[in-house]
């Protein structure tokens, strides 16, 4: 008989080895569960009627998404009618999209150049480590914080948003790009070196063609992220665009219908971007 372990009570064979670490994980999970229950039981509700609050929440959501509407004066087009409000909102949406596009473009160009210098198979270990270490720091600080940091010099507004968002985009895309480059088979680089090709020729004739689809799909993901951040920056950093109107509707005018209106617009843009991304991927992955 081999040393198969059995549950002392049921006599069943034990598959997973019980370790001290697993026991501790279980203990921690149990403590967290207890704290959660205790937290809910003792929460300070300031006399809120939970039933009424729930009904109200559902009602407000109903207004928000059931009767979305923008107010002409809030969009600076007083007396323009609902179509005027809609086009004004579209223009603001375009500003937000432009912010996302610009920062993605600037970030992508810088990340592409530095990414080539950071890929282990294209450069020496020291250069790669220095660049990767540097951008790891950039990435560790959230985008919003970078915008606020640059706002010290540039003042809150579009300039700080562009610089800060581009900065974090470089950090994000550089990691993605350089790892895509590192995926490339070392042999291909050898083959081109063996035929006398220079570094730049190898980059443009082998590395970029092989990793183009990865680059495209990472850049698009970052564009989607930047769009979401651009909305937030309009609200938090005065970068302009639809985000600022969202912020005003929510925090100043308390106009629930307008929040719904703007949310629908943002949702539509996100949906369109998703569709475009899928189409692009289909086109470029066609032979895979």
């Amino acid at each position: 008989m081999t040393a198969v372990k059995r549950n002392l009570r049921t006599g069943r064979i034990i598959v997973k080895r019980p370790t001290a670490a697993k026991r501790w994980v279980n203990v921690v999970l149990l403590v967290l569960l207890a704290l959660t229950i205790w937290g809910f039981l003792t929460i300070e509700t300031k006399g809120t009627d939970l039933g009424k609050a729930t009904v109200d929440t559902i009602r407000y959501f109903g207004i928000m998404f059931g009767r979305p509407a923008g107010v002409d004066t809030h969009f600076g087009v007083s007396g323009a009618g609902s179509w005027g409000v809609f086009t004004a909102a579209l223009r603001l949406l375009l500003v937000t999209l432009a912010l996302a596009f610009l920062t993605t473009l600037v970030g992508a160009i810088i990340a592409l150049i530095l990414g080539l210098l950071a890929a282990r198979n294209l450069t020496n270990t020291r250069t790669s480590n220095i660049i990767k270490g540097f951008v790891a720091v950039i990435r560790a600080v959230p985008t919003v914080l970078w915008v606020l940091i640059f706002a010290i010099g540039a003042g809150l507004g579009a300039v700080a948003a562009v610089i800060g968002m581009s900065f974090h985009t470089v950090g994000y895309l550089l990691k993605a790009y350089s790892e895509s480059f590192e995926e490339l088979d070392e042999g291909v680089i050898d083959a081109l070196r063996a035929s006398g090709a220079s570094w730049l020729q190898i980059v443009f004739q082998a590395v970029l063609p092989s990793s183009a689809t990865y680059l495209l799909s990472w850049t698009f993901i970052r564009f989607e992220i930047n769009f979401a951040v651009a909305v937030a920056m309009g609200a938090a950093a005065g970068a302009g665009g639809i985000g600022f109107n969202l912020f005003m509707a929510a925090g100043y005018f308390f106009d629930i219908s307008e929040i719904g209106f703007i949310t629908y617009l943002i949702l539509a843009v996100a949906l369109i971007m998703e569709l475009v991304a899928t189409q692009l991927k289909k086109r470029y992955h066609i032979h895979d």
Partner: peptide, 20 residues
């Protein structure tokens, strides 16, 4: 580079750029 250009090389795993 010029000397390498005058020596051809072929590999076990072909080492082609497959997307081209």
């Amino acid at each position: 580079r010029h000397a390498r250009a005058k020596i051809g090389m072929i590999f076990q795993h072909y080492n082609l750029v497959y997307r081209l």
